[in-house]
């Protein structure tokens, strides 16, 4: 049974790449294009891990984390960032969310997801 990943990423190409790459690594990926849709998806379905871009229009990464933590506190979250504002990363860390810098090597990301799933 493949693990289910919810991917929220506003940039289409990145989203497509990550979905393809993670699928290649045997994850079931549901991809959405912003934070609000991520929350909707999280309410409608069950996921094993959330993968969030920190910089999104509308609900940004941190705000999405805040909502998701309330809705599904047990699901681990991994952040992705273009390293723009460190404030984002610090705020994410307050929720126990680790952020990875883009560009990320897919193997590293997979390893990170697997680590998160073990917890």
């Amino acid at each position: 049974m493949n693990k289910k990943v919810l991917l929220a990423e506003d940039e289409r190409d990145v989203r497509q790449f990550l979905r393809a790459a993670l699928t290649e690594h045997h994850f079931d990926v549901t991809a959405v294009n912003n934070g609000a849709n991520a929350v909707v998806a999280a309410v409608e379905q069950t996921f094993d891990v959330y993968l969030l871009d920190m910089m999104m229009p509308g609900l940004d990464g941190v705000q999405t984390i805040r909502v998701l933590r309330k809705v599904t506190p047990q699901v681990p979250i991994i952040g992705l960032t273009g390293y723009v504002r460190q404030g984002f990363m610090a705020q994410a860390l307050e929720f126990g969310v680790m952020c990875l810098n883009k560009p990320v090597v897919i193997e590293v990301l997979v390893k990170e997801i697997e680590e998160a799933l073990k917890k």
Binding site: F17, V84, N101, K102, I106
Partner: peptide
């Protein structure tokens, strides 16, 4: 900071996709 923000996502795609294609 601006450059980093604008560049990292496209780079993610360039690097990621080319590596994926190689694989």
């Amino acid at each position: 900071a601006g450059v980093a923000h604008e560049m990292n996502s496209p780079l993610q795609v360039i690097i990621g996709v080319s590596q994926m294609a190689l694989r």
